[in-house]
Amino acid sequence: MTNSETRPLLQWSAAMAMSGTIGAVVLESGAAAPAVAFARCFVGGALLVLWCLSRGWLRAWRPSRRDLGLAVLGGLFLVGNWVLLFASYALSSISVSTVVYHTQPLVLVGLAAAFLGEKVAKSHLARAGIAFGGVALISLSAHGEDGKPVQLAGIGLALGAAVLYAGASFVAKQLKHIRPHLLAAVQTTVGALVLAPLLLVTPLPTTTSGLLWLVLLGTVHTALMYVLMYASIGKLPTTTVALLSYLYPVVAVLVDIAFYGHRPSWPEALGMLAVLAAALAPRRGKPAAQDKPADRPPAGERVS
């Protein structure tokens, strides 16, 4: 493997591994979900704006009203998905929320069928049935770190986050002509503006450690992660991207087990495998596309 192939492989792998530790950072910050999402938007968005300015992308951008409106709408979906996902961690567990969240790609295909008239293959319907059967199995058998059954509200929030992220991805499909770094900078800026008033109700942490966890989330798990993902995805085959994306939920489960004492039961583990196998499996019937570099992270693989 040449250096030109190794570098993007390592960049994408690092980004997926970072994604798997987001839940731990959120819990360790001790902040409420809206405050965490604001910090991520504010810190990460500011760094992404600086990155785009340094590259000259922002100064040269002249968006149409349609593009700007869609970018704002996508930003609202993206930030809403973060708030729901972060809130779900405390009501279920990092691993359960993350795995349930990975139903996003299946939801996105459903949205594309409903609004763009794209045909839904029978294989997709089968995968959707398997995935949501896995969610049901997790709901009935999963336990939180206190040993008690997870709250269904936590799973519901994770599913809601998946729907909102699928909506953000659906909007992003209409904005493929915009540089993804630039779109991310705009959407996180929108998120910071929308979430700022909520700090009156859910303030930022008052402890130094809590604030440092949020700074880490904004710098490493947002700005750096976006740069790594977008620097690598266009240079990797779609099949490689899909395979390495398993790192995200796998790392999340391992972190949950190692640091939060989560012990998945056999039914829960089976449900998790069903969701991941169904949601992350490559589509059938498009072999030629599997050898082409992906131009943008697939739904559920960009940023959690």
Rank of each mutant, 00 (worst) to 15 (best):
L183W: 09
L164R: 03
L224R: 05
H221R: 02
G156T: 06
T202W: 14
Y230P: 05
W213P: 00
K173Q: 12
F170W: 12
A172D: 01
L152D: 00
H177C: 08
T202D: 14
H221I: 01
V201T: 13
L152R: 11
V215T: 09
H177P: 04
A192L: 07
L204H: 09
V194L: 12
V190F: 12
T189G: 14
A172Y: 02
Q187G: 03
T219S: 11
G160K: 02
T222V: 10
A161S: 15
G154M: 04
L159P: 03
L200P: 01
V215D: 04
Q174V: 01
A153H: 11
L164K: 00
P203H: 13
L164V: 02
V220M: 11
G167M: 02
L228T: 09
V171C: 03
L204Q: 08
H177A: 13
L159G: 04
L164C: 04
S169C: 13
L204P: 04
L157V: 03
L159W: 05
T207R: 13
V186E: 07
T208Y: 11
G167C: 07
A196W: 14
A185S: 14
L193R: 05
L159S: 05
K176P: 00
A223R: 05
L216S: 08
T207W: 08
T219I: 12
A192S: 14
L204R: 09
A168P: 02
I178K: 07
V163E: 01
T222F: 04
L198T: 15
V220C: 10
T206Q: 14
M225S: 14
G191N: 04
L228I: 06
V194Q: 09
A192D: 04
A166T: 06
A223D: 07
T189H: 08
A184V: 10
T219K: 05
A185N: 11
L204D: 05
A172K: 02
G156P: 04
T207Q: 14
Y226W: 13
I155C: 04
M225I: 06
V194W: 09
T202S: 14
A168M: 11
Q174S: 12
P180C: 13
A166N: 06
L204G: 07
P205I: 04
L217P: 02
V194I: 12
L200W: 13
F170R: 00
Q187A: 05
